[in-house]
Design a protein around this nucleic acid. Sequence first.
DNA 1: ACGATGATGAAC
DNA 2: TTCATCATCGTA
Length: 175
Amino acid sequence: MREVLSQRFFDRPTLRVTRDILGKYLVRRIGKRELAREMRDVEAYIGFKDRASHASRGRTARNQVMFGKPGVWYVYFTYGMHWMLNIVTERKGFPAAILIRGVGGIPGPGRVTKFFKIDRRFNGQPANRRTGLWIEDRGVKVLPRTIRRSARIGVEYAGPWKLKLWRFHLSPQTT
DNA sequence: ACGATGATGAAC
DNA sequence: TTCATCATCGTA
């Protein structure tokens, strides 16, 4: 079984999408080659008020993709050297996205983009085969008990929002 | 524990 | 136009 996730998958409440995306595969086509890794560590950034989210300070040139259609990549540059990969969720007009923080064998959002050769070219592009970067269901069953929830990483500044348990990840030896 | 390294957004 | 900050990582 191998099915490309459609826009419909992402047009749902973000926490549900975030949980469901674990065990799915991030796939990248580079020429004739395909790289694919299981998603194991993801974080939700939800709505206008979430102070950890870029969207909390209103719509800007950088974050406008978060306010757009679901199933679109939001890629931004940070710390002068790292690209961060997110997939937009929920309806147009409501800013939300999921940060891909780690995939199989590759922990860390900066390492994920480096491994998959992802940069600003994907920002605003839909996740599908045509754009060369998409997400597949490969039939992996993720048992609810193998999913861990925690506070998000690197958002100490976010006040009460730093306490939200919006990081979902799989422990190293599960599936 | 800290420096790298540059875009971003808010202040001035 | 300046400046602090930043959804991080590698080295120590």
